[in-house]
Measured scan of single mutants.
Amino acid sequence: MKATFQVPSITCNHCVDKIEKFVGEIEGVSFIDVSVEKKSVVVEFDAPATQDLIKEALLDAGQEVV
């Protein structure tokens, strides 16, 4: 499964690193693409990962998800 999250609070590479760390810890996540320019995060994943778990990880990383 693939999901795109709009994350307007992404401003720098530190944000990218933190997002990759938090989302990458979720079992089932196979790909993460964070774009500072587009302020988006694209995640490819399989169970047990879910969109809700990914959104929670983004929030835990200090990001706003819309």
Score class of each variant (00 low, 15 high):
Ala57His: 03
Ala49Leu: 01
Ser35Arg: 05
Asp33Cys: 15
Lys55Gln: 09
Ile54Ser: 01
Lys21Phe: 11
Thr4Ser: 07
Lys55His: 10
Gly62Phe: 14
Ser40Glu: 13
Glu44Arg: 12
His14Gly: 11
Ala57Met: 04
Met1Ser: 12
Lys21Arg: 11
Gly28Pro: 00
Ser40Pro: 03
Ser30Arg: 14
Ile32Asn: 01
Glu44Val: 14
Glu25Ile: 11
Asp17Tyr: 12
Pro8Ala: 10
Ala57Ser: 04
Val36Tyr: 06
Asp17Thr: 13
Gly28Ile: 00
Thr11Arg: 13
Glu64Val: 14
Val34Phe: 05
Ala57Pro: 00
Val36Thr: 05
Val66Pro: 05
Met1Lys: 10
Ala47Asn: 06
Glu64Trp: 13
Phe31Trp: 13
Val23Arg: 01
Ala49Met: 01
Gln6Phe: 15
Gly24Ile: 06
Glu27Val: 12
Pro48Gln: 03
Val7Asn: 03
Asn13Tyr: 12
Asp17Ser: 12
Phe45Glu: 01
Ala47Leu: 12
Phe45Asn: 02
Lys2Gly: 05
Ile19Phe: 03
Glu20Gln: 14
Phe5Gly: 00
Lys2Ile: 12
Leu59Met: 11
Val16Asn: 03
Lys39Gly: 09
Phe45Pro: 01
Thr50Ala: 01
Asn13Phe: 11
Pro48Thr: 00
Glu44Ile: 15
Thr4Gln: 10
Pro48Glu: 01
Asp60Ile: 11
Val36Glu: 05
Lys21Met: 08
Leu59His: 10
Gly24Gln: 07
Gly24Met: 11
Asp52His: 11
Gly28Tyr: 02
Glu56Pro: 00
Lys21Asn: 05
Glu56Met: 14
Pro48Asp: 02
Val34Cys: 09
Ala47Thr: 09
Ser9Ala: 05
Val43Trp: 01
Ile32Ser: 01
Pro8Glu: 07
Phe22Asp: 03
Val29Lys: 00
Phe31Tyr: 13
Glu44Leu: 14
Gly28Ser: 01
Asp46Leu: 10
Thr11Ile: 11
Val16Phe: 05
Lys39Phe: 06
Asn13Thr: 12
Thr50Gln: 02
Gly62Ala: 06
Glu25Asp: 11
Ala3Leu: 12
Asp17Asn: 09
His14Trp: 10
Ala47Cys: 09
Ala49Pro: 00
Thr50Val: 02
Lys2Asp: 04
Thr11Tyr: 15
Glu64Met: 12
Lys39Asp: 05
Asp46Pro: 01
Lys2Ala: 07
Ile26Tyr: 00
Ile26Leu: 10
Glu20Tyr: 15
Cys15Ile: 10
Ile26Ala: 03
Ser9His: 07
Lys21Ser: 08
Gln6Asn: 11
Leu58Pro: 00
Lys39Cys: 13
Cys12Gln: 08
Val42Glu: 08
Ala47Phe: 13
Lys55Ala: 07
Val43Met: 01
Ala49Tyr: 02
Val34Asn: 02
Phe45Val: 02
Val16Pro: 05
Glu56Trp: 10
Glu37Ala: 12
Ala3Glu: 07
Glu64Leu: 12
Val42Asp: 06
Val66Ala: 10
Gln51Asn: 07
Glu56Tyr: 10
Phe5Gln: 01
Lys18Gly: 02
Glu56Leu: 13
Glu64Phe: 13
Pro8His: 08
Lys18His: 06
Glu44Asp: 06
Gln51Gly: 07
Gln51Pro: 12
Val29Ile: 07
Gly28Asp: 00
Glu27Cys: 06
Cys12Trp: 09
Thr11Ala: 08
Asp60Thr: 10
Leu53Pro: 03
Glu44Cys: 15
Met1Cys: 12
Asp33Ser: 12
Leu53Ala: 13
Val66Gly: 06
Asp60His: 14
Val23His: 03
Met1Val: 08
His14Tyr: 09
Val65Cys: 15
Ser30Ala: 10
Gly62Asn: 06
Ala49Gly: 03
Ser30Asn: 09
Val41Asn: 01
Lys38His: 14
Pro8Asn: 08
Ser9Val: 04
Cys12Glu: 09
Thr50Phe: 03
Ser40Val: 14
Leu53Gly: 06
Gln51Ser: 12
Glu27Arg: 11
Cys15Phe: 07
Asn13Leu: 12
Lys18Trp: 07
Ser40Thr: 15
Ile10Tyr: 04
Lys2Trp: 12
Ser40Tyr: 14
Val23Gly: 03
Val34Ala: 07
Glu56Asn: 14
Val23Met: 05
Leu59Asp: 05
Lys55Met: 14
Ala3Lys: 06
Asp60Val: 09
Val29Cys: 03
Asn13Ala: 12
His14Glu: 15
Phe45Arg: 00
Cys12Ser: 14
Leu59Val: 10
Glu44His: 15
Lys39Ala: 07
Ile26Gly: 01
Val65Thr: 05
Gly24Phe: 10
Asp17Ile: 14
Lys21Ile: 07
Asn13Met: 14
Ala47Glu: 11
Pro8Leu: 09
Phe22Val: 12
Val34Gln: 01
Gln63Glu: 05
Asp60Asn: 13
Glu37His: 08
Glu25Val: 11
Thr11Gly: 07
Ser35Asp: 12
Glu20Thr: 14
Gln6Gly: 08
Val29Ala: 03
Glu25Gln: 14
Ile26His: 01
Cys15Glu: 11
Ala49Asp: 02
Ser30Cys: 08
Lys55Tyr: 14
Thr4Lys: 09
Val34Trp: 04
Val36Arg: 03
Val66Thr: 10
Val65Ile: 09
Asp33Pro: 01
Glu25Thr: 09
Ala49Arg: 00
Pro48Ser: 01
Lys39Val: 04
Thr4His: 11
Ile10Asn: 02
Asp52Ile: 08
Val36Lys: 04
Phe31Cys: 10
Thr11Cys: 13
Glu56Ala: 14
Val36Gln: 05
Phe31Met: 10
Gln63Asp: 04
Ile10His: 04
Phe5Glu: 04
Gln51Phe: 15
Asp60Cys: 11
Cys12Asn: 13
Ser9Tyr: 11
Phe45Leu: 01
Thr11Trp: 15
Glu56Asp: 10
Thr11Asp: 07
Gly28Gln: 00
Val7Phe: 06
Lys21Cys: 05
Asp33Gly: 10
Leu58Val: 03
Phe45Met: 00
Ala49His: 02
Gly24Pro: 00
Glu20Pro: 01
Glu25Phe: 07
Thr4Arg: 09
Thr11Met: 15
Asp46Trp: 12
Glu56Phe: 10
Leu59Cys: 06
Pro8Tyr: 08
Thr11Phe: 15
Leu53Tyr: 05
Phe22His: 10
Pro48Trp: 03
Glu64Cys: 15
Val65Asp: 05
Val34Ser: 03
Ser35Gly: 03
Glu27Pro: 12
Ala61Leu: 07
Lys21Ala: 08
Ile19Met: 03
Leu59Phe: 10
Lys2Glu: 06
Leu58Thr: 01
Ser40Phe: 12
Gly28Met: 00
Gly24Ser: 11
Val41Ile: 07
Val42Pro: 00
Ile32Trp: 00
Asp17Pro: 06
Ala49Thr: 03
Ile32Met: 05
Ser30Ile: 12
Ser40Leu: 14
Ala49Phe: 02
Gly62Trp: 10
Asp46Arg: 14
Asp60Ala: 15
Lys38Trp: 12
Ser9Gln: 06
Val36Cys: 15
Val65Gly: 05
Ile26Asp: 02
Val34Thr: 05
Val29Gln: 02
His14Cys: 13
Glu37Cys: 07
Glu25Arg: 15
Leu53Asp: 06
Ala57Val: 06
Ile19Ser: 01
Phe22Pro: 01
